[in-house]
Write a protein that binds this DNA or RNA. Structure first.
Lengths: 195, 195
DNA sequence: CCTACCGATCGGTAGG
DNA sequence: CCTACCGATCGGTAGG
């Protein structure tokens, strides 16, 4: 039914908001049902279990990320220009998060990194896809001479993710408004475009 | 009573282990009581509320961090040598965490960064103390000519915490054994001691 | 999608 | 520190 799909989309949308603030565990069927004016079993019927709901929420967060970050950099040429555009969109996404609790990925990764199961596996797989995308443009940039020939792509990715994680932490824990500019400066230095 | 203090210490010790894996919310009075062979009210009596227990656990995690990181760098001279020693101990602490779930601070900060209340306040205050300590040695290093005179101490701290957060993420989510060396390399480059 | 319900567990309290 | 208990809420199921 189209109606069922619509209801499912509404559940996911609300789940993204709740989970971004309270975490994927803090997201409860009861709270979700109350917010949506549904019964608990009505909510659960769309997913089967809380764990399946959590996986669906993580996948929806990935779709959101794809729209907000790669989606906004798609116009830039492959290689360094695309890498720079991706990083700019990535910082913007943290500076102006589409969800009230900020990047659901960053929070969920920290929440599930010590557990086993499908939620953790989904998070790790999606992070892998994103890093592979970035790595490709790092390699193209090196090949084009836009990054030093002796650059280590994985070292660049390591430091890049660090700058983003520092941004997330400085914004949310320290509420430091200078963090986005610090992240942009760090990234510019890393990618050699600070000249 | 000395016995009461001893019991409290045992509760905290067990709490550190449980919370490092399950988070400060995943830490429950019932599980704690069962593990310790106590009643729930016996556990709760030492703290008054779960929130007070969470604050006590965060403070105990700070004591642990102090022993493991600043405590091991205390022999190095103030300024760049101390800064380098602090960073080396910081990476070691993540590579060989004293708790099974890794740095409880990093996990708890992410868990509580969107909430209000004493747990969040305690976490933010302790992070502030640690950054102030680091900042002092960055400044001394600049004053001594061991870091460029035009260095921005807070930018260095931002990038430093990023490298550590990237280390935490790479170790725990990606289970990447090369992460500690990547963190050391990134830090060496940041502090100019990679020559 | 609903009502009605399950056993388990939550944080916390009363009273000793 | 205990027993005994509270109301609330958890994820989930039966049956429609």
């Amino acid at each position: 039914m189209a109606q069922a799909r619509q209801t499912r989309a509404e559940i996911i949308e609300r789940s993204l908001v709740l989970a971004s603030v309270a975490g994927l565990d803090g997201l409860t069927i009861g709270r979700l049902a109350a917010d949506l004016g549904m019964s608990k079993s009505g909510v659960l019927g769309h997913f089967g279990s809380k764990e399946a709901l959590q996986v669906a929420v993580v996948e929806a967060a990935a779709d959101l990320f794809d729209r907000e970050v790669p989606g906004r950099a798609r116009g830039a040429d492959p290689g360094l220009p695309r890498l720079v555009a991706l990083c700019a969109a990535w910082v913007d996404y943290h500076e102006h998060p589409p969800l009230p609790g900020g990047c659901l990925f960053t929070a969920a990764a920290s929440e599930f990194d010590d557990r086993e199961g499908p939620v953790r596996d989904t998070l790790a797989a999606l992070a892998g896809v994103w890093l592979r995308d970035l790595r490709q443009h790092v390699r193209l940039a090196i090949g084009a001479g836009d990054l030093p020939a002796n650059s280590d792509p994985d070292q660049i990715l390591f430091e890049l993710t660090g700058h983003i994680l520092a941004l997330h932490s400085a914004l949310r824990l320290n509420r430091d408004p200078t963090a986005p500019d610090r992240a942009r400066r760090a990234i510019a230095r890393l990618l050699g475009s600070d000249t």
